[in-house]
Computed example of a mutant assay.
Amino acid sequence: MNNISSALAPPHKQQLLQLAGESIKKGLRGETLSVRATDYPQPLRVLRATFVTLHVDASLRGCIGTLEAHQTLVQDVASNAFSAAFRDPRFSALTWTEYERLDIHISVLSPPEPLQFSSEDELLAQLHPRVDGLIIEEGYNRGTFLPSVWEQLPDPREFLRQLKRKAGLSPDYWSSRIRVQRYTTESIP
């Protein structure tokens, strides 16, 4: 299984949290934060995929991310923080009042690793609850659950059923064309 090659140092994690908060503050002012990767230390300039999850008073308020790395870590965090606050289609735009009670969580993803299996039971036997994030794909249907979703869905079979539902498939759907990848995350904070 792919593990994140090097854990981020606490000061780098703090920089990412501050960056996410600043990106959201700029958005609240109707502006977009411009991020120059060269202004940040090398570990924050590598190409990485991230998700930014927002909670207000312990309730989900937004979650947006990328599954494949296509920009630097700092650029991805700033972009996903802005999108989680203002572009998550499940929620209206974040307000200043909510910002005062906002909890920001960043997940830095390892590169996805394809899983090989010939049945649903074989797939389930390979899963590492509370460790694996999963991406499921079948044709145009695609969905992902971060490893943190195991907290709400600790049973591997139910985790997979709900992930299929999220991808637009029936929870009992199975096909030899289903593709599944797993990844791990480094969580901040």
Rank of each mutant, 00 (worst) to 15 (best):
I178E: 03
R101W: 05
L127G: 10
R45E: 06
L73G: 11
K13A: 13
A9V: 05
I64F: 09
L60Y: 08
L160D: 02
I104D: 06
G65P: 01
I178S: 00
E113D: 12
S119W: 07
L54Q: 00
S59C: 10
R130S: 15
K26Y: 13
K166Q: 06
L124I: 15
N80G: 08
L115G: 06
V56E: 04
V35A: 06
R157F: 09
R165L: 14
T72S: 15
Q162Y: 09
S118L: 12
V74L: 08
E186C: 05
L16H: 05
W150N: 10
L54Y: 04
S119V: 04
S59M: 13
A84D: 05
L8G: 08
R45T: 13
D155E: 15
S107Q: 13
E68V: 14
G133K: 02
E137R: 05
S176K: 13
L16N: 07
K166P: 09
P111A: 14
V74F: 10
H105T: 15
W150I: 06
S79Y: 12
N3V: 05
A37Y: 02
L146E: 01
R130C: 10
G62K: 01
L33T: 03
T50L: 11
K166I: 08
E113S: 15
A20C: 05
L17G: 00
D172W: 14
R179T: 02
G139M: 10
A20K: 08
L16E: 01
